[in-house]
Design a protein around this nucleic acid. Structure first.
Lengths: 134, 134
DNA sequence: ACCGCTATCGTTAGCAC
DNA sequence: TGTGCTAACGATAGCGG
């Protein structure tokens, strides 16, 4: 007789509290994430770099990149890496780049605010329809 | 009368040949990948940077990073950024400030992503209710 | 090109070991 | 802690608009 199990339940996307569950979930989902990343590369011919730091004290690093993390990160920066010994120059370039990122993030926030507004009114209009058709 | 559709079929993980299908799949799977990445961050408190270049001529770049792609990539390279001279120190302080701003902005984006998701599923559940009550 | 739909496939939470 | 299982959940291929 096959023993009935409960199976999985929905899980809210909020920080997990239970430490040991968190570890298990971190491992499982990290594996899934890397698999999906690799599939995305192969299926679509996309070039992807991903770097994951584990939570907590361990703070181990896991990475995957095709063709390579370095190459893609350099291309992301739109330049070759500066010589690591020239600190001032390095920081200046980084700061310039951070300004760009800041600008882009701000744009992102603005876009999302717009989308959110649209979603809200969509929901409300549906409520309107329900109300008026009841 | 509800028309029966075929639904999805298994798909081998090999480079897709059909260009237009590839574009669609790239968009859909990229969205899924970023969602999973963001969920991994939130659920497990992991720190993740991901950079995706679209295939073909367009070669657009999509990225997500928490706290930020820069910070994580720098940590990945094993070089923290503390220069000791005055100018460097000045820049360093500025950069710390910018990192704080980046973190805040990223949090904002993530919060909004969450809210947006909730709004979306709210809309969908309302649609469900409408469907089942009609 | 983009969005909505849904049958089907793929991922994973909760257990048991 | 790690491996294996499976019901249930979530992602998405194939269509239609």
């Amino acid at each position: 007789m096959p023993r009935r199990r409960n199976g999985r339940k929905r899980v809210d996307i909020v920080k997990m509290e239970n430490e040991s569950n968190l570890q298990v979930t971190f491992s499982k989902r990290r594996a899934g994430l890397f698999k999906k990343t690799s599939e995305h590369c192969t299926l679509c011919g996309a070039e992807i770099a991903i770097v994951v730091f584990s939570p907590g004290k361990a703070n181990k690093v896991y990475s995957f990149g095709h063709p390579s993390v370095e190459l893609l990160v350099n291309r992301f920066h739109g330049r070759d890496l500066p010589p690591p010994n020239n600190e001032g120059r390095h920081n200046h370039l980084l700061m310039n780049h951070q300004n760009v990122v800041l600008r882009e993030l701000n744009k992102e926030v603005m876009n999302m605010e717009e989308i959110l507004q649209m979603e809200k009114s969509r929901g409300e209009s549906i409520l309107e329809i329900r109300r008026s058709s009841s």
